[in-house]
Nucleic acid binder design. Sequence first.
DNA 1: AGCACGCCGACT
DNA 2: GTCGGCGTGCTC
Length: 724
Amino acid sequence: MSCIVEIALSCPLRQTFDYLSDDLAENWQTGMRVSVPFGSRQLIGIVIAIKSISEQTISKLKKIDQKLDHQAFLPNEIMQLVQWVSRYYHHPIGECFQAALPKRLRLGDADEMQMETYWSLAQPTNTKPGKKQQHILNLLEDYPEGLSEKALRTQLGNVKSSLSALQAQNSIKASQKVALPLPCLTIQQAVALNNEQKQAVEIVLSRTGEFSTFLLQGITGSGKTEVYIEICRELIEKQQQILVLIPEIGLTTQFVERFRQSLNARIVVIHSAVSDTDRKQAWLLSRAAKADIIIGTRSAVFTPMLNPSLIIIDEEHDSSYKQQDGLRYHARNVALMRAKTLGIPIVLGSATPSLETLYQVKQQRYQLLKLTQRAGGANLPAVRVIAGQNASDNNGLSSHLIKAIKKHIEQNHQVLLFINRRGFAPVLMCHQCHWQANCRSCDAKMVVHQYQNRLFCHHCGLIQTLPTKCPECGHPELKSYGVGTEKIEQALTGIFPDVPVLRIDRDSTQRVNAFANMIKQINQGKAAILVGTQMLAKGHDFHDVTLVGVVDADQALFSADFRATESLAQLITQVTGRAGRGKKAGEVLIQTEQPDHPFWQNLLQKGYEAVADNLLSERIQMELPPHGFWAVWRGEAKEADLAMQLLQQIAELLQQTASSVVILGPVPALMEKRAGRYRAQLLMRSADRAALHQLIDQHILSVTKLKLARKVRWSIDIDPTELI
DNA sequence: AGCACGCCGACT
DNA sequence: GTCGGCGTGCTC
């Protein structure tokens, strides 16, 4: 008897599709991949459910062309997770599966792991081996299970001929095995923990096998990573797997190295810089429990595991865990849901936890684990706020800051300067007619990039040649205002001609390895000044930096974004942790136009926690997130007003049945025009999460059918992190 | 989203 | 006379 198979297809429709199958229902399983005809094309879909043929079955059903898998390809847990994501984020199910699967598997690659040639010792022979051959034999002696040819090659260089020779005399034998990540060939170092760290490890381990959420709050340099490692050590011994999420790919290498130095584990990495083939392999290895630790960015939260035991979210406050287009999921949120259904603990780590997480700690839903001591006994640096009023005379650097830089450089130490803007200067103006370089597709100014002799729009990527005279009145002199990394770099090179100045921002690190090379140079420890954007603030250990300067820290204090203060407090606290991580005492100088702003007194005297606490009370009082439950409808269209019109119609629909949900707007976006599109948004807020979601469900179908919905690109954002 | 079908302007 | 513009409608 044939059956009906319900399938999710990657198209933006909020529905699944039924197909006919000649095969018996019992030969089908949810989570299999199939190839089906859809309209005029052929698509790959995922089996959601198997149904028997009912009398009302109409003959409009098409037949399944091909079964791609013989057994369930996606484990049930992932099937449930993706379907939950689709419901929770009100996003088309097919696109949710798309986000959860590695590209190659999504496009129909066979469910097979990559194989590799592994070599192992056979029988000893009398023939005297050559030097390289001896090296190989020595190495293989340590690996009775065998070592892949790839591992031998990374270790000993070109080994092809030596291997053939050894094989010819039967000293070694080859076999084909599943390609595992390169084993760690160095000796594992034990990690020494202080009491706080030990306690944190014990508490988490005492809760294995049940769902519980921990906030591991440790000041920068307090050794959160060591805590992760020690928890992992015990779990790995029990053949258990751990999923570790990190905010961005720049931190992977460093992170993976730390783990590899201390753990004899099979570690796979999943992020956008990993090739499609390797990602597929990592995913399959994880699903088969042939990888112990899975380290990855946001999308890795969907990686299936056979023996999951723990999820770790490092730097849980980081905004990159929230996807800002398409399926707007928050990896932390999805991970929490996953841990809950799997019945395993989840550890959120941060020196500067998000207000959301602190709120949950307050409600006693998360257990707080604190690390208050800096590893190695390093002291937290002295932090001072300095006035930047006269800074413009020195290209944005106050004389106070310059003096401090000089002092630290003379002691042969390194200096780290943050300026959160790329390029040379953010404004270009004509003095005669007041013309300004503005972007033609955004409500934004063009930023001067002097090295490339160009103007850039940081919002849409528009590039122009730097004009030599005013395009409006022809005046030959254009002036630039404000500071960016390039200007600071140039000023410092002028003031300290004998000291290397390294600029580290997206522009200077675009070439492959450029970033790694700079980090290498920095770690050589010679006196140097590092000038960079936020990308330097995250995670990196610079042992010889003793002075950290923050230039132009003001912007956030006047920002319309209610989250700006939170981010600034996090940034400053993180940055502060970059100074004096080694044995040397550190110093932090924050240059601001507003040294008397109460924010600084609060942050410096009472610390991040107190500031966060204040902000949280403020948010609760003003009924802003994390208080209540929020959703945002966003729209953008090439013609002005269209997005506003659509959102107005949606607002009217929602208003009809909104009782416990407040509808706010629509309002144009803060930067209304961006990349040639006019944007607007409509806010929803409720104290009742279910009511909020129900209201969306109730109307989303009618929204799809609105005429304007075809002309306006629209989306819905649950638990938005950006509200302007 | 894709893709097809369909009905009106400037070209070999 | 046709190529192609994007409006509209559908996808089990």
